[in-house]
Nucleic acid binder design. Sequence first.
DNA 1: AAAGATTGATATATCAATCTTC
DNA 2: GAAGATTGATATATCAATCTTT
Lengths: 147, 147
Amino acid sequence: MDNDDAKAAWPLLLTAHAVLVQDIERRLAAARLPALSWYEVLSALEDAGGRLRMHELADRVVLTRSNLTRLIDRLAALGHVTREKDADDRRGAYAVLNDSGAQLRARIAPVYLQAVAELFEDRTGPAERAAMARTLRTVLSGSRERD
Amino acid sequence: MDNDDAKAAWPLLLTAHAVLVQDIERRLAAARLPALSWYEVLSALEDAGGRLRMHELADRVVLTRSNLTRLIDRLAALGHVTREKDADDRRGAYAVLNDSGAQLRARIAPVYLQAVAELFEDRTGPAERAAMARTLRTVLSGSRERD
DNA sequence: AAAGATTGATATATCAATCTTC
DNA sequence: GAAGATTGATATATCAATCTTT
């Protein structure tokens, strides 16, 4: 019944997320690559042209400030990113993507994209995914307006 | 374009999950209630009639064995669940829901369900959610067959 | 040897408190 | 005092190794 399906949507979203992310992380670890969160931070930086303020980066990857600080600590310790103070507003700091970080992202990408293709895209039609995307966008637009 | 929407589906699934779960956890903490993972374990036990083998429970809530062991440790320390050895196969153990655990679940439920209603259900139509549920089910059926 | 579950060591995440600059 | 970011203390999660029973 359609009504039962509607009720199952949220639990299924939770379960599908957990199962797929678990599988993706397993594949990354098997390829001796870092976790998904690293990829997301490196990608967000690359998409933004290589540098972002910490709080802006935290928003984009949906991490708390504190968690992002720690993640950037680890990336910086390995030379993948650098911190730079904002010259205008000296309270703020930028996270800056290094060559090493860009290369790391490029090594993660094929494994990650292959996993998403196999686990998610090969099992769904484009129209289904498009519909899901539109639904999720309306959900998010509600959550982001009151920021 | 439909094709762009389809490409955005997986990133949106990740982001929507992160945003909604973060908000739900915030509400639970504000109400001095334990985290979502506790609710899911307690609910899985209740749905199963009050008792489940550890590995079966781990599968249902999508946690590793080790993580579930730790979670049950904490729940047992507070008296919400009890461990019982399986009499037939003495390697195995059951997690058993106590009254205290059932009551805790009942206190979490309204806050959790209210959050899901506001953040997810109020922002989507039943038909959209039903379609999403069916899509996610096909995704999951692929992942679970090879267990 | 393999299944079921747990443990020790370690990594990561979280909260409240802190520091600096606006 | 509030924004931006970090830190210390603590909780939770993860991996490999272990123990027990089949």
